[in-house]
Design a protein around this nucleic acid. Structure first.
Lengths: 208, 208
DNA sequence: GGCATCATGTAACATGTTACATGATTTT
DNA sequence: AAAATCATGTAACATGTTACATGATGCC
């Protein structure tokens, strides 16, 4: 299955960032952290080796710039790199891959009594709110060039957390209060998990 | 940072499944796939070695059962295992970790013209609808014991896809049609990414 | 002077997937 | 009799994180 020169997602992310202008490995990391953190992360341990590999393959080219005595290697995407990126964009993607330890703990809380379970959900909610707060803080200073797609994925990310926190709230009313009907569930009926799919799946997609 | 006997999430998931009753490695895999797939996955390459480790640590105990000549090792959780699981449940969790190649491609589609970008969003939406359809098919036969928490996380997962597909639709109207105002965005205003956070973050959490 | 940040990197480790091997049983 | 599924496992690989090392520059 190894296509002799398959690139990793990290590689494409680097190409994607570089497409917007030349940058250093250090800056790539912070740009990814600030803009793509809702659906991708990368550490220096991945970025720096990948930059070397991409340069060796001729998809990017590095230039030494020194401000004073501080060395800084700025990488620029080559035309081959641009082609590789464009080709990747046209390719079908893998599914969403979510890892959520908090939800895992909720899921296995079956032997807990009600109060303990509620405390767990409250904790989960609080964690998510805190996560969101942290991300919000980071994102505040982002829009350097404020491109449309960057705003769109921010929108995606914040909305995602909005959904997750709402779900926590729904679970709190569902497992907590006895006067459940006081808090109407407006979006869809959580007790009927399977029927809602008709609404979602049978919508407005053109027949393939 | 290595606490000499730190367990991986895979280990806890195994304990969690086993808490509901003894099972084989094979069954653990299918149970995880059917119930936790929205926020966790595990392959045989992880499960079988982990079962050995957990047995060596005394958190689970295996028994050979044979139906005919087909060997099957059924593992049961021990009281030590139950304790470990309970302790883990009380511990704070890591944040959500999402990997989304499709969104990554959308994000880097800045150099594409409108029509190409729209085609990409349509493709993304179609992929998600297909994913959901596949998961729905799998989940149909799930509720063996139909526990509440299992339904709750199914609810979570389907709602998540619901959100993602809705987001795609919003992006289609946002980047596509000129008569944008004809399709009112009911949930929250996507053009004002930052102000909505007040509504989410400043809600009904008790002051910590 | 001391701290934060800029800047680059690596080695060890942890985690996770894929492909393969093996063979029994059940279903079509 | 073929195909699907049950059942267990491993080796190679791919991916990703953490901790560390190094040193310059800018700011209080």
């Amino acid at each position: 299955m190894l296509d002799r020169n398959m690139l990793s997602n990290t590689a494409y992310v680097i190409l994607g960032i570089l497409q917007k202008g030349p940058t250093s490995g250090y800056d790539i990391k912070s740009k990814v952290d600030m803009s793509a953190r809702f659906f991708f992360t990368a550490s220096y341990g991945q970025i720096y080796p990948e930059l070397k590999r991409l340069e060796k393959s001729g998809l990017i080219a590095g230039t030494e710039r020194l401000n004073g005595r501080r060395a800084r290697t700025e990488y620029a995407i080559t035309s081959t790199g641009r082609e590789a990126l464009l080709e990747w964009l046209r390719t079908p993607s893998a599914g969403i891959d979510v890892r959520d330890e908090g939800l895992l703990k909720f899921f296995f809380g079956g032997k807990l009594d009600r109060d303990d379970l509620l405390a767990r959900i409250e904790a989960l909610r609080a964690e998510r709110v805190a996560d969101l707060e942290r991300i919000r803080e980071i994102s505040r200073c982002v829009p350097d060039e404020a491109d449309e797609l960057q705003l769109a994925v921010l929108d995606y990310g914040f909305g995602l957390y909005d959904y997750v926190i709402d779900w926590c709230d729904r679970m709190l009313t569902r497992f907590g209060s006895r006067e459940e009907s006081e808090f109407p569930v407006d979006r869809w009926n959580p007790d009927d998990v399977l029927t809602l799919l008709q609404t979602v799946g049978g919508g407005d997609t053109p027949p393939t």
